[in-house]
Simulated assay, not measured.
Amino acid sequence: MRLLHTSDWHLGRTLHGVDLLDHQASFLDHLVDVVRSERVAAVVVAGDVYDRAIPPVEAVTLLSDTLARLAEHTTVVVTSGNHDSATRLGFGSALMRERVRLRTRVASLGEPVEVAGALVYGLPYLDPDVCRAELAPVAGDGARTLLPRSHEAVTRAALARVQADVATRRGGTRPRVVVAAHAFVVGGRASESERDIRVGGVDHVPADVFAGADYVALGHLHGPQVVDGPAGTVLRYSGSPLAYSFSEQHHAKSSVLVDLSGDAPVTTLVAAPVPRRLADVTGTLDDLLGAAGEPHVDDWVRVTVTDTARPADLFRRVRQRFPHALVVQHRPEHPDAGRERTVLVNAAADPVVVAADFVAHVTGARPTAAELAVLRAAHEHVAAAERSA
């Protein structure tokens, strides 16, 4: 039995203003071809199908067409990620054809999709603030005690439901157990383009919560990677199909072909098509307009010009040389000693740390512990409101 693991499509995303939908469509064409050629029994999509809760119409159409094409050849299990609206992505799931299975509700996370002797459990993204009541164990009198406010607590409770369901199926041959989860597992390496999911200052779960599964199809981190886990369990991020930030320029984008027919899962990376390379080019303007820039004229580039003085007509001259330049910046190699340096902030930065740095910059003093608590509460309130949109 073979399945194909993919995640983090982020349909509708742009890269520094460049529309990526055509490139995303090319990847999905490739995915359909792999399913055909490799006779895949199931495709597992581990969250962040869309890039935002309310995706553009074109992204919805692309997903609809892709699921229909995949369902002609295989079973598709799709879970929701932190970028998705679970309600919108899961709309109509009860009406879907048998070979398209959407897992976006906490209530159904203990109900596997059975494929060729394997049990595939799809876990939607588990927001602690949303799930800690629903996943809390029920006492004999019917009362519930809220789970701790953490990703670890809700994920561990979800896996307890999975393990309980697996236990009811013990009999002859032990079924293969596959868990699809959208989470930041300890040991994973982040990029700059993943949205912050901290709750209470913590964004990760330990790998041991997945003990008992044969293969854990992870989503959220954009770099393909294996995470060390408990004995007998393979945890892997497939990564995103495209590079969504310059921090991902050296990633080898792929999907994961998983063979479950032996004693242990065997994984093979299937390279994704590369629409256009990303590259950083740095140097004086004369160097970049000359031989140093030649290898990158067809790339998406971030151009850093290091001349001591800002060259005249900088942007136009760079764009003439690099028609696909996405970022153009002037950073002298030896800036004036007294000049204040700009601090870059990316999507992976803790918003509360960024806010605290701003408070220190404006007031000249770091925020107190009480003020930090207010900043974090405000950030988490806004983040929760955005997720529920």
Score class of each variant (00 low, 15 high):
355 A>C: 13
350 D>G: 04
359 V>P: 02
332 P>I: 08
360 A>S: 10
347 A>T: 07
330 H>A: 04
345 V>A: 02
330 H>D: 03
339 R>H: 07
358 F>N: 01
342 T>R: 13
335 P>Y: 11
354 V>R: 00
361 H>R: 15
361 H>S: 15
346 N>E: 00
351 P>H: 03
355 A>H: 07
333 E>R: 12
346 N>H: 01
354 V>W: 01
361 H>M: 15
331 R>C: 02
350 D>Q: 02
335 P>V: 08
341 R>G: 02
333 E>T: 05
354 V>A: 05
337 A>Q: 07
337 A>Y: 09
345 V>Q: 06
351 P>E: 02
348 A>F: 05
351 P>V: 03
355 A>Q: 10
344 L>T: 12
349 A>Q: 11
336 D>I: 00
359 V>Y: 03
358 F>K: 06
361 H>Q: 15
361 H>I: 07
349 A>W: 13
337 A>I: 09
340 E>D: 14
359 V>S: 06
358 F>V: 08
332 P>Y: 06
347 A>I: 03
355 A>Y: 02
360 A>W: 04
351 P>D: 01
331 R>Q: 12
337 A>D: 10
352 V>D: 01
339 R>N: 01
343 V>M: 03
353 V>E: 15
350 D>E: 05
332 P>G: 05
344 L>E: 11
356 A>T: 06
345 V>C: 00
341 R>K: 06
361 H>D: 15
347 A>S: 13
331 R>F: 09
359 V>T: 00
343 V>W: 12
348 A>Q: 06
343 V>L: 10
332 P>R: 07
347 A>K: 05
353 V>G: 09
337 A>C: 04
332 P>D: 10
351 P>W: 01
357 D>L: 13
352 V>C: 03
351 P>R: 00
334 H>L: 14
360 A>I: 01
351 P>A: 06
334 H>E: 13
337 A>S: 12
360 A>P: 03
344 L>A: 14
342 T>W: 07
357 D>N: 14
349 A>I: 01
354 V>Y: 04
331 R>K: 12
350 D>M: 07
337 A>H: 14
340 E>W: 12
348 A>K: 05
331 R>T: 13
338 G>R: 03
354 V>G: 03
358 F>H: 09
352 V>L: 04
331 R>L: 13
354 V>D: 04
349 A>D: 15
339 R>S: 14
331 R>G: 01
354 V>C: 04
340 E>V: 15
336 D>G: 08
357 D>K: 11
361 H>F: 15
353 V>H: 10
339 R>M: 08
334 H>G: 09
332 P>T: 09
361 H>A: 15
343 V>H: 14
360 A>Q: 09
352 V>Y: 02
353 V>P: 02
355 A>L: 11
351 P>F: 04
335 P>N: 08
335 P>W: 11
347 A>R: 11
340 E>N: 12
361 H>Y: 15
349 A>M: 13
